[in-house]
């Protein structure tokens, strides 16, 4: 009853999906489309784990009825990396060990990718301000901020490395 087909652009490809009324973008991504990189931390808009980009702007997908993104461009964590390798911000998160449990990481990466797209050289205060809605309960924010600074400075080493090659579990590089 009341279900309808919604179409939008998801990470560069057109998708059409039959949704029940007011299903959230988060639940449609995770349960119907298999895009589980978008996490579910609170469904209250309070943690940032479900951050996605809608037409390049960060939004909380847990608060967004999927009907509201009809015809729009949605980018999730699955669409951040280039075809081969990792985006510089992803590389920087790895190099700075900017995660422990990893649950907040997709939201952090999506948010900071668009921060750097909008604003290639943010100040430390601007970075902190941008991260205000994304909660990390393990690592603390210092390595995350360092990763963003490193990515902004172009200071990562291996951008472009094939993600499938990473890492060598022996510890040799």
């Amino acid at each position: 009853m009341g279900s309808r087909i919604v179409s939008f652009e998801l990470c560069g490809r057109e998708v059409e999906v039959l949704v029940s009324p007011m299903a959230t973008l988060q639940s449609v991504l995770r349960s119907q489309l298999g895009y589980t990189g978008t996490k579910e931390g609170c469904r209250q808009g309070g943690c940032g784990s479900c951050t996605v980009l809608v037409d390049g702007e960060p939004m909380m997908s847990c608060l967004l009825p999927v009907e509201d993104v009809e015809g729009r461009r949605v980018t999730t964590i699955e669409g951040i990396a280039p075809v081969a390798g990792l985006a510089p911000i992803q590389q920087a998160f790895i190099e700075k060990n900017a995660f422990q449990c990893g649950y907040c990481t997709p939201g952090m990466v999506v948010l900071t990718k668009t921060l750097l797209d909008h604003h290639p050289s943010p100040s430390r205060d601007e970075i902190i301000d941008a991260l205000g809605g994304n909660v990390c309960r393990c690592t603390g924010y210092a390595p995350i901020i360092e990763a963003i600074e490193a990515a902004a400075a172009g200071a990562t080493t291996d951008a472009g490395r094939d993600a499938g090659d990473w890492p060598d579990p022996s510890g040799e590089r």
Binding site: T36, T76, I94, F99, Y103, V109, A163, W166, R173
Partner: peptide
């Protein structure tokens, strides 16, 4: 310093919880 084996999965959203 050793890179964690789960690092690439974390930053690409491919870790399965």
């Amino acid at each position: 310093s050793v890179q964690r084996s789960d690092a690439a999965a974390h930053v690409t959203g491919r870790t399965r919880y």
